[in-house]
């Protein structure tokens, strides 16, 4: 047993005594690891630090992001900084937002056995299997919505018995949705027309020639949208 303010963790089977309360990432650094792989944004956004572990007295494999998960006594862990994945290449512009497109690039989708392991391992708590099911129905808007917070860490794919790469299916669906199904922004179209017609050119040029005193005057007098 470690002392009162510290715990023992096992990094790839090797024991280290580290202070209580650190994230797995900080605990490993405390133990002396300098990351090359396995560390990224350090803020839960990039999926570089996927970690799998077990804790004493529990048969289950647990997962988490090393930068977001607090280390606990007896944690027996390894990182999975890379996992081979099947990534199709496609031209979003010329694809249809339809089931056929998903199946053309990721036919293994239909192999889903509904085990729900993907949902259970997702560190973002996404309903991964639900979006895989939505993909199998061709409900692309639903896939886009349910998968939006995906950080592409790859843990779902690492445990999928059907060998689906869920996060790559998801990004294809999101891009198809945003490109072909989401309504286009009319105000943007109008602004682009104005700009192509040179509507703001002379005013902008004039702004670049103003001295600081004049700019300050304009800035301090500008009206602010409530």
């Amino acid at each position: 047993m470690a002392s009162e303010n510290s715990i023992n963790i096992f990094v790839m089977g090797k024991k280290y005594e580290v202070p209580k309360g650190l994230t797995i990432m900080k605990a490993m650094e405390y133990a002396g690891y300098k990351f090359i792989r396995g560390a990224g944004c350090r803020g839960g956004f990039c999926g570089a630090c996927s970690t799998v572990y077990r804790v004493p007295g529990d048969y289950r494999i647990k997962v988490g992001l090393a930068c977001q998960t607090v280390a606990e006594e007896g944690m027996y862990l390894t990182q999975i900084p890379f996992y081979p994945a099947n990534k199709a290449t496609y031209d979003v512009e010329n694809e249809k937002a339809a089931l056929g497109t998903l199946l053309k690039y990721y036919p293994e989708l239909s192999r889903c056995v509904g085990c729900n392991t993907c949902t259970k391992v997702c560190p973002q708590e996404l309903k991964v299997m639900d979006y895989v099911n939505a993909a199998m129905r061709g409900d692309i808007a639903k896939v886009a919505d349910l998968s939006f917070d995906c950080i592409m860490c790859g843990l779902c794919a690492s445990r999928c018995p059907a060998e689906i790469v869920q996060y790559n299916v998801a990004i294809l669906a999101r891009r198809l949705y945003a490109r072909h199904m989401a309504p286009r922004a009319k105000h943007l179209e109008e602004r682009l027309e104005e700009m192509k017609a040179g509507k703001f050119d002379s005013q902008l040029d004039e702004m670049t020639r103003l001295d600081t005193a004049k700019l300050k005057e304009l800035y301090n007098a500008r009206d602010i949208e409530p």
Binding site: V92, E93, F148, R174, A178, R179, A182, R184, L188, L192
Partner: peptide, 11 residues
């Protein structure tokens, strides 16, 4: 913004 919209970025 238009470039991103065309690339399928989900604003």
């Amino acid at each position: 913004i238009r470039w991103l919209e065309d690339l399928g970025c989900m604003f």
